[in-house]
Amino acid sequence: MKIGLYFGTFNPIHVGHLIIANHMAEYSDLDRIWLVVTPHNPFKKKNTLLDNHHRFDMVYEATKDYDKLEASDIEFKLPQPSYTINTLTYLLEKHPNHEFSLIMGEDNLKGFHKWKNNDIILEHHEIYVYPRISEGKTETQLLNHPKIHQIKAPIMEISSTFIRQAVRDGKSCKPLLPEHVWKYIDDMNFYK
Rank of each mutant, 00 (worst) to 15 (best):
Y27K: 08
T87F: 08
R168F: 00
S134P: 10
M188Q: 14
G8N: 03
K64N: 14
N22V: 09
L50D: 04
Y184M: 10
K152R: 01
K68L: 01
F10A: 11
P79A: 15
D186L: 07
L49W: 03
E70G: 00
Q141T: 15
H95G: 02
N86C: 15
D107V: 10
L35N: 02
I148H: 07
K137V: 13
A166T: 00
V129H: 08
T89Q: 12
G111V: 08
G170R: 05
S101L: 05
D67E: 08
P79D: 15
E61N: 12
Y66I: 10
H124W: 08
F43M: 14
P178Q: 15
H124S: 09
H40V: 12
I163E: 09
D73Y: 10
I151E: 03
H17K: 02
R164F: 07
S72A: 06
P154A: 06
D187I: 03
K94Y: 07
G4I: 04
Y27N: 09
T48H: 03
E157S: 13
E126A: 11
T84G: 01
L176G: 07
I185Q: 06
F162M: 08
T84C: 01
L18D: 09
V167E: 01
G8E: 02
T84M: 03
L109F: 09
H95Y: 12
K44C: 07
V36G: 00
Y90V: 14
H125F: 01
E135P: 06
S134L: 10
T9A: 09
P12A: 11
K44V: 10
Y27R: 07
Y90K: 15
S72H: 01
L88D: 13
